[in-house]
């Protein structure tokens, strides 16, 4: 059993769902408060979905400068596994732990649906238990999920295998190259707009594909310790 931190910012919505997902995956969730400066020796961190600081200024822009994020950035640069979901992905981009940015959906509406994705890279801490090219279904719900970056960055992400997930059966938000999630060069930081924490239980999920994220983390942590 691993201790996995879930950060709560003012305005986080899915922090409790993420904690619950951690528990369902057989790990111990550790609640981390945005104003604290300690990661409490967790072995991984999840930045959950929601509307941190009311999405004021830009999504994730203010959360990025919260005290806990200073520690998350430092630890991530040292190799700590970090998963950013939706608003968490936006925070990771604002922190420059991940390249690019997320802008308002090109369709100009909030999009909520069960989204088919292709796992493009399994060379990350959070996706190594998937099969390359595997098609999964993960809940998507956002208003500002359009992934953009300059042409050189997109080319580098594609070339270096840093595109982790791609939208299938229609691009819901105008993301360049249908990109749904990316990773850093080291593969320990992953961000995606869809919500794997909502795909953990048969009762409420169209799939159990969220479990693969935790299976991946477990494989990484086990290999790491062993």
């Amino acid at each position: 059993m691993s201790r996995i931190g879930v950060v709560t910012f003012p305005g986080s919505l899915d922090d409790h769902d993420a904690q619950r997902a951690v528990k369902l995956a057989g790990h111990e969730p550790v609640a981390l408060w945005h104003a604290h400066e300690s990661l409490q020796e967790v072995e991984a961190v999840i930045l959950p979905g929601g509307f941190s600081y009311g999405d004021y200024l830009r999504c994730g822009a203010i959360a990025r400068f919260s005290p806990i994020m200073t520690e998350v950035i430092r630890a991530a640069e040292g190799g700590l596994p970090v998963l950013g979901i939706c608003n968490g992905f936006q925070v990771l981009c604002e922190s420059h732990l991940l390249p690019g940015a997320l802008i308002r959906n090109d369709v100009r509406t909030f999009v909520c649906r069960d989204q088919k994705l292709r796992v493009e890279s399994v060379d990350t801490v959070w996706t190594n238990a998937f099969v390359p090219g595997q098609e999964i279904v993960i809940v998507l719900k956002n208003g500002e999920g359009g992934f953009v970056a300059d042409a050189a960055t997109i080319e580098r992400l594609e070339g270096e295998n840093q595109v982790v997930f791609r939208y299938l059966d229609g691009n819901p938000n105008g993301s360049l190259n249908d990109i749904a999630g990316v990773t850093n060069a080291r593969g320990n930081v992953v961000g995606l707009m869809p919500h794997p924490e909502h795909n953990m239980e048969e009762l409420t999920s169209p799939s159990l594909d969220g479990r693969g994220f935790f299976a991946s983390l477990e494989r990484f942590l086990t290999a790491h310790v062993g």
């Binding site: 802008i103 308002r104 959906n105 100009r108 359009g146 953009v148 300059d150 105008g174």
Partner: peptide, 14 residues
């Protein structure tokens, strides 16, 4: 301002 090459959905709606 959003950079010229970045889509501006709000501006488009207006």
């Amino acid at each position: 301002m959003p950079k010229a090459e970045i889509l501006d959905p709000q501006g488009k709606a207006v």
